[in-house]
């Protein structure tokens, strides 16, 4: 099931700064909530690391903490010089990884 959405412009000029938007479906359980029935704390389960790669090279990454909302949205800029492929990786605390890809043509 595709969980992530990314929006990258299909074409750009060399040296242009483009805006990249990402969104992923994740419950981002903060670890502070209690189960109403049992009174037990619900264990924390969040995405703790987001990485964006361009042609295999990391150009943007961020560490996320418990205060990030569910279904997190993240947008950032990138200066592109040549055509290539973007790779986006969300790393889950439980070791799971969600990936998305996008291509861009630079003229």
């Amino acid at each position: 099931m595709a969980k992530a959405r990314v929006k990258v412009p299909g074409k750009a000029k060399a040296g242009e700064v483009i805006l990249i938007k990402t969104l992923i479906r994740h419950k981002m359980e903060s670890g502070n909530r209690k189960d109403k029935k049992t009174g037990q704390k619900i264990p924390r389960h969040i995405i703790d690391k987001f990485t964006a790669k361009y042609n295999g090279e990391v150009f943007f990454s961020s560490d996320w903490e418990g205060g990030v909302s569910a279904n997190p949205y993240c947008s950032f800029n990138c200066k592109v010089d040549k055509s290539g492929a973007f790779e986006f990786i969300w790393h889950d605390e439980k070791g799971e990884e969600f990936k998305a890809e996008a291509k861009i043509e630079v003229s």
């Binding site: 595709a2 969980k3 959405r5 969104l23 949205y73």
Partner: peptide, 14 residues
Amino acid sequence: FLNPGMLWVQRGIA
């Protein structure tokens, strides 16, 4: 894109 509801639409399409 900003609208998180679209994640459910996407799942609906699938």
